[in-house]
């Protein structure tokens, strides 16, 4: 039985409705902040804006605080309400999602640190095209995963899961070309290594967005699709519909 985004607002206890609504609202606020962090981190790198990179590093504390706050709210709901069925799945999905969002925040912070390093070098950096391309891809994945969470949209979530494989391929091919740059010009090794770290961070952001999308499927359908290969995924989800 699939649930909808209205499902959690129909309890006899209005207070419980409100508590679950707040969990969702706060998770979305955290999602919005993390999305902005990734966007700013990538922008600071591409534009060489070290002030913005600094700001991203500072804002990471806000992301961490939000994780603590939302986890605390989830603990209270579990202790006081002993939720069952879709309510329980919502609380579990939110706890898992905050953990992934916090990790995305850390990845944004890593990108910002490398942006600061690269802006000090002030030279021509190879690999920015790859960064731009992959960052657009993973930012779309993150945006879609958060939208899927807000709308309880499993189709959009499944799309994100499928996208992750493409990002992994793009990451692999970008790494190969960056290795070639390093072999061609040993003076570029230090800056190319930084770009590699950035790409690695972006690829991890894609993985975390993929996790978020998996939690949406769990929340809506009660189906745990983690560790399921793509080929059997559609069949599993379709069977449950």
């Amino acid at each position: 039985m699939d649930i909808t985004s209205d499902t959690h607002s129909q309890h006899i206890s209005r207070q419980f409705n409100q508590e679950l609504e707040e969990l969702k609202t706060h998770l979305m606020a955290m999602g919005g902040l993390v999305e902005k962090q990734v966007q700013d981190a990538v922008y600071s790198l591409l534009e060489g804006d070290s002030h913005l990179a600094e700001k991203v590093r500072d804002n990471d504390r806000q992301v961490n605080d939000l994780q603590l706050q939302i986890d605390d709210e989830c603990t209270r709901v579990l202790a006081r309400r002993q939720p069952a069925a879709s309510d329980l799945r919502l609380v579990l999905a939110v706890i898992r999602a905050t953990s992934d969002l916090e990790r995305i925040g850390d990845e944004a912070s890593k990108i910002a640190r490398n942006a600061m390093l690269l802006s000090e070098n002030n030279g021509n950096t190879r690999g920015l095209v790859e960064v731009r391309h992959i960052s657009e891809h993973v930012r779309k994945m993150l945006r879609d995963a958060l939208t899927a969470f807000a709308r309880f949209d499993t189709e959009l979530a499944m799309q994100v899961v499928r996208e992750d494989e493409l990002v992994d391929d793009e990451y692999g091919s970008a790494m190969r070309s960056l290795m070639t740059f390093m072999m061609e010009d040993s003076r570029s090794i230090s800056s190319v290594l930084s770009i590699m770290w950035v790409l690695r961070a972006l690829e991890r952001v894609g993985d975390h967005a993929n996790n978020l999308a998996e939690y949406v499927v769990y929340l809506v359908k009660g189906l745990d699709i983690r560790h399921t290969d793509l080929d059997s995924l559609d069949q599993k989800v379709l069977k449950k519909s």
């Binding site: 129909q10 309890h11 006899i12 069952a84 069925a85 329980l88 009660g222």
Partner: peptide, 18 residues
């Protein structure tokens, strides 16, 4: 039944919905 009931009626009862 308590994590993923098949029917809306069951879900409504165990989660305390109207």
């Amino acid at each position: 039944v308590f994590t993923n009931p098949r029917l809306q009626r069951t879900e409504n009862y165990i989660t305390g919905r109207m």
